[in-house]
Structure formats: C-alpha cells, structure tokens
Design a protein around this nucleic acid. Sequence first.
RNA 1: GGUCCGUUCGUCUAGGGGUUAGGACGCAUCCCUUUCACGGAUGAAACACGGGUUCGAUUCCCGUACGGACUACCA
Length: 512
Amino acid sequence: MSKEVRVRFAPSPTGPLHIGGVRTALYNYLFARKMGGKFLLRIEDTDQMRFVPGAEKYIQESLAWLGISADESPWKPGDCGPYRQSERKADYMQYALDLVEAGHAYYAFDTSEELEAMRERLTAARVVQPQYNSITRTQMKNSLTLPAEEVKERLASGDPYVIRVKIPRKEEVRLNDMIRGWVMVHSSTLDDKVLMKSDGMPTYHLANIVDDHLMGITHVIRGEEWLPSAPLHVLLYKFFGWEDTMPQFAHLPLLLKPNGNGKLSKRDGDKLGFPVFPINWENQETGETAAGFREQGYLPDAFVNFLAFLGWNPGDDRELFSLEELVDAFSVERIGKSGTKFDIEKAKWYNEQYLRAKSDQELANYIIEDASKEGVELVQEVAVKAAGLTKGRVTFPRDLWNESKFLFVPLTSFDEDVAAKKWNGDAVKVLTHYSIAITNFEGTFDAETAKTMLGDSAEAEGIKIGKVMQAVRLAVTGSGAGPDLMEVFAILGAKEVSNRIQFALNTLPVIA
RNA sequence: GGUCCGUUCGUCUAGGGGUUAGGACGCAUCCCUUUCACGGAUGAAACACGGGUUCGAUUCCCGUACGGACUACCA
C-alpha cells in the first residue's frame, strides 16, 4: 500500500501565467485526480525583484476558469502551509545551515564584480565551462578558502554572503524520469548553485526541495526546462537525507512555436496572432496587456480538451473529453517525449465542437447578450431559433450574433458582387409577385409555406425558381450566403420579408 | 562551446522486428444542399540520414545531421 499521491503546481507570480504553465497545472491536476490524490498550488515568490502585483490573482482566476481546483493553496490552506514561499522565508535558512554544517554547502562572499572577473578570466583561459564549481571555488572568497576566523568575522559584521551547494567532484547522479527513463549526469558538469541569496531568500533550487519534502510531494510534474537542474535536486535530496521520500520526476515536453523553432514564450502572443495566455492580462503599473483565450471566445472545456492533447493522448481515436473524462483516461505513460508545436486551428476546431454540443437555449443567451450590447433587445424564443439556425456555422460565441444579426436589424446594403451576378429582370419579376402574394398573407408563414408560395410566384412568372434563388436571398438578407433561406423567412415573418423585398426592389438597380 | 533531451504525414499523434504505417486538424475533390456552412465520402500527405544486429528494420543498438532546453544571488 503506497502512500497518497500529492502533486503541486508551483508558478511564480512574475506576470500572466502562460499556456505552457497552464498545461503543467492541468497535467498535475489530472494526475492527482486520477490517482485519488491531492493537488496543491504553491506560489514561488522568492524573487522579490520580479514580483508583479496581480499575477497571483491572475493565476487563481485562470485556473478557476478552467475548473482546475486545488485541494490546498494560499486561498485554501491545508496542513502544510503557508503556501507562499515568501511566507516560509524563515524556515529555509535553517535547512541551508544544516547543509553547511554537514559539509554539503558553504558561505560565499564574492561580489558580483568578482564573479564576473572570474568568468572573464576563465573564458580568456579557454575554459569551456566558466562556472563556480569544485575547481574554481578554491580561488574564490568562501568559507572553504578563507580562514575560519575571517569567515566568522565577516558573518558577524554583516558582510553580504550567499550559501552555495558544494557539488561533489566525482559522482554519477542518476534519476529515473517517468517520461524519459534513466537520465545520468556527472557531477563534474554541475556547478555550485546558490541556495540562499544575499537577500535572505532561498533560490528555487533550495526552496522547491524543502517545500516539496515538507509538503509530502510524491511526484514532481514540471516542464522540461527543469531537466538540466534535476540532478542538482536529486543531490540535494541526498544531502538532506531524504532519498527515501524523494518524489518521482516527470519532465513534460515543451510547447513550441507553431512556425518552427523555440519554445512558446510570453512575447509570442502578439506576433503569432493568437493568445498564449488563458485570460486577459493587464499590468496595472506598466500598462502592459496581453490577450487571453477566454476573451477571444474559447470555451473552458474546449480549451482544456485542446491543451490536454498537446503532448498527451488517450491511445485510441477519441478526441472529445470533458475534464472528468480526461481524469479517467489520463496516465503519465501516455505523455509524449518530444516538443509540441502549437496549432491554433486545432484549438478552433475544438471550440466549434463544444459550441455545437450546446443547446439552442444556452446559445441563445450569447446572442441576447451581444445583441443588447448593440442596443437590440431580443426575446428568448426568437434568439433560440436564431441560435439553432447559426450554430453550425460559427467558431466563437460572438459569431452567433454576427451570423444572425441580419435577422434583427434593417438591411442597409447589399453584397455588390452577388447583385452584379444574380440581380436580373427575372428575379425582379418573381420578387415583385412574391412580395405582393405574401404581404397580406394571414396564415402561418412557416418554412414550408414560404417555400410553396415562392414556388408559385416563380411558376406564375414562368421562371425556374433555381435561377432566381440567390437574388431572393440577396434581397432579404443582403448577402449571398447564409442559413436555410426558408427558415429565415419563417423567423422574419411574411410582413417583414415582403418589406425587405420592397426595399430591395427600390434600392437595387432596375434591370429590364 | 559544454551538459542534457528529442526526431512517424504541414501540425497533433497511434503503432511497433514482417502492417495497404492508423486516427485527428488543416488542405483538395465529390455527395448532401436552389447559397455558404454543417454533415457524409474519398484523396494527396510521414517513419531525418548512415552504419550495424537480424532471414527481415520505421520499430533494437551505435554514429551523424537537425531541432530544443539548460548553462543567473530567475523561476
């Protein structure tokens, strides 16, 4: 009987959460639910310089929109709080000190200028890897090179210092990644990463190990950009003596730019013409804004479904999955290894699928809302009909109103190309006849009736109905394309159709 | 440069020692439709390359190429 699965999503509040992060959150969530475990959200705000107000709220709102709920978070604390690293600040130093005590870490007093000088010196000496490591640390100012007395004095006098991990000179570090299998790295290629910064805050490397341990995290599912530092993390677990409870790692393939190369970054949104963020973002201080999927008209279910399939698949031909179904079907084994290019067309397709699956009643609300923004008040019943007529032709909810708008507002113009091609004497004859026929029509003007009467008018004029159909559509809708014309007539009603035909007859050029 | 990761249609992917290499998006054609769209059908479209191993490699191994990530007192 293994212990309960506990996973975490640990974003840092440095701006809007980008889509890759959202996917990471999703996979963590799916895994936790699938395994009957817990999904926690931890805010990694150890970088005070990059902290952006509002980013935390953005993360919260984004996940809420998608239905990704955390069992424990800053807003819903469990037994392992606090869930913001800045609020755990006091604890990290002791852990770092324990490492120093055990000889796995040391104080370093080098200034940034000295570090820079070291790198330049090494570069000049053609050292391939100018870094702070088992070789170079012997020439730097740290507690391994300085006399114990001086170290004590510097510490006592408040000299700025960092604590660095002391990477062993020769050691093979292995980890068994759930997605990539065994990964082996030699410690000689690792550097003595800073664990505690001079501002008293831990770096990611220290904080994430300490917190994951303290929070009982069993699986770390994160982006592939963390793979290179994973060996360091494994070493840290070992130094702390936590090997037995070290989480399993799963490094997710990256989300790539659609046009080719490089991982999808925050800046790509504007360039590529589609959002890279879940919801709209606005930085109050800088005025920086970014577009979100939600505001573009993507449905949360569709977006989640789309995102889940970016790097994962169920192993069969099914494509449409609700969040619950994703939970049921999810497994880490079925996550791919290679980077995934982002294809907005597929996202649109998903949105169309989910939109069409909605009832006319539900869709009608979008139409009513959008219409009222333009000062048009619609009754539910008509909006429902309009929704039914147009839902097969749209990608986003807002398209519903755009596609059905012509039903509710007076025509002001006619498509010129269609007019040039289809508006002719025959059409005028039929339309004139039809207009008169229906203007005083008393019965139920349903699609069937409208069609029969139109056929009768054409026959009376001795003209084939098919020849003038496009002109009829043009006269009543102003366009050469649209939903079933007779259904449109039924919604419009005989009176309105007649009026529109009259308007067209008066507006369009008269042709003999 | 170094370390690590990766490579099946344009894209997302299934598959896995012997298959007509399957599906989805997109694209094209046809059908449906008195329009456009939806829907249906069909089609074009892929195992990066070179060596092994093997009776047989897209599949296993090794190289090469290409791509990517990382290489901060950022996460």
